[in-house]
Design a protein around this nucleic acid. Structure first.
Lengths: 331, 331
DNA sequence: TTGTACGCGTTATCAA
DNA sequence: TTGATAACGCGTACAA
């Protein structure tokens, strides 16, 4: 029925322990028996039982990718999908086993459930996507001493058990805004910030303020909560006043642009993220493009470093200030 | 160190088997000991070891969600993300454990690797997303007698071990095209079909042909391979000739529309899928909206039926012929 | 209703 | 370099 290591051992005329050694590439095995074992493995079509292995070795190559996603706005599903694809590429290369978890799409998920889920599988290393100041579960994981983690987009959470990885949001916002804003106290910049509980919100806000110090324009900050609709409304309210509208996300920038169109006025705008929707609705706006796939990919590699006992670190990935045209997203 | 079932047994003054029975909600346990055991569990913060459980019971609640995705076109990442979110909602409700696999983003993935991956985890039930006629791995899984599967969007693959689930692509295409095409032999319809190796391609093509029989227009079918760029090129070539352009996907419809804009002519268009991008670039086109989240959700429930020994079946989910406006995707 | 004892498939220790 | 053998933590006949 089910082929086990015993069957292989019998077939190859060796002990089970020898088979195990061969399969784990231990050196203390003669070439002759090695071949004999591998032949038997091939012949019997033997497939190791990962549960038995995990139980016996007390090791599991499982890691968790934990997402806090917004399942309302499908236009940005792209971001999480790219995270996932990049991360899975890395787990495949590193022979790690990703357990994907969406903590917010499932009601009644509390820290105990999550902890239980992870520990029952022997998972002690996790990657956190979409953390914010109110995301108690994720913060608990970071604070706990049971898990080591890599946090995406919240460099401030760096500590002895937590590596961080993200682009430099501060300078990203600074650079992209620099493309559109104008110097001088008489110039008005409307900045549509993200949500107050977002860590990147603070970083990006600091970016526009850094530019303000340099360019000395008049800055009005409004929190549009990463909402396109709110950005639209706020732009209708303050767009007339502004010379330039800088947004902390592409979606908000598109909302702002839509408002301007409806108001029939023109203002320079810029976004943040570099999602492909910008190629359709972005009207050649500048944006700060993040490579989400690469971020997911690197996050796994950083986690692997932690698994291998390395110390936590803060990783900064490059961004690109670009304008996405229709031709760029066309396939 | 690690709290096991033995520790709980000791604490509660019962045998390990009793603890096991309590945790599995077996009836043959007195209320008194039940409480004593649960108290001990809570007090010791006991967490079951899923590997040990799987090994001992020879059962695993693991299923696999296998995706064949196109990782070039991020505009439609939304579709797979919605599948995933819906599927995960269901697995959470059913206490199943999803293993997510992207077979095409990882090079050198052959059937043996995949089979090995699945069987090593005791996975015998899988859901297949994105199958097409050339997707050998998935077809092998369907044909093998080792796995039972639910296939999304390929009703034709239905058999004794394979349930299928999808909207009625034929009538979906029929209905949406009906909104825009015009009766009469002198009327010209350009139909931008999908890829020839896609199962839905055939179904949707049959849909437009059904309508042709009824409306008697002149039909020109061109395969745009689900590519926006190809749709754009083909529309430039045949758009002038056509009175109406029907596309087998939203992305192609958007490409066609873009071509028309560049050609500075107007033709009625329709798409298929109902992705949110249509709210931005769709110019009020009609489309056949699929509820991808619901499809993912239902697919898991169907798989659960197979797990519970039910017979395979063909499930058809409803579609909606709508026109997506900007307001619809705005949050 | 409860407990004993064995088996699940693999790994690891230790002796040969 | 190899082979017994004892864990790993849990489930489940079967006996009590």
């Amino acid at each position: 029925m089910l082929v086990t290591i015993k069957d292989v051992a019998k077939k190859a005329n060796v002990a089970t322990s020898t088979v195990s050694k061969v399969l784990k590439n231990y050196s203390s095995v003669s070439e002759a028996t090695r071949i004999r074992v591998l032949d038997a493995v091939a012949e019997l079509n033997y497939i190791p039982n990962s549960a038995a292995s995990a139980l016996s070795s007390k090791k599991s190559n499982q890691i968790a990718l934990i997402f806090n996603i917004n399942d309302q706005r499908q236009s940005i599903d792209e971001i999480n999908m790219q995270y996932i694809i990049g991360a899975f590429k890395a787990t495949s290369e590193l022979n790690l086993n990703p357990e994907t978890i969406f903590i917010n799409t499932i009601k009644d998920y509390n820290y105990h459930d999550l902890r239980r889920l992870l520990l029952s599988k022997g998972i002690k290393f996790v990657i956190l996507f979409g953390v914010n100041k109110k995301q108690k579960l994720m913060l608990d994981i970071i604070d706990s001493n049971e898990f080591k983690s890599v946090v995406v987009d919240a460099s401030i959470l760096f500590n002895e058990t937590t590596s961080t990885i993200s682009v430099d949001h501060l300078n990203g916002q600074y650079e992209v805004a620099k493309k559109v804003v104008i110097k001088g106290k008489d110039k008005h910049v409307l900045y549509l910030a993200g949500k107050e509980d977002g860590y990147v919100t603070d970083e990006r806000l600091a970016g526009i303020k850094k530019l303000q110090k340099e360019y000395d324009f008049t800055l009005r900050v409004e929190y549009a909560d990463f909402s396109e609709a709110k950005a639209l409304r706020l732009t209708k309210k303050y767009g007339e006043w502004a010379d330039v509208i800088a947004s902390a996300s592409d979606l908000m920038a598109i909302g702002a642009m839509q408002a301007l169109i409806e108001m029939d006025i023109y203002r320079k705008c810029c976004g943040f993220d570099g999602i492909s929707l910008m190629g359709y609705a972005g009207k050649n706006m500048y944006t700060c493009k993040q490579d989400f796939k690469e971020i997911g990919y690197r996050a796994v590699y950083e986690l692997n470093n932690l698994i291998n006992g390395e110390k936590t670190k803060q990783v900064s990935l490059p961004f690109k200030v670009i304008s996405i045209r229709y031709e760029d997203v066309l396939f």
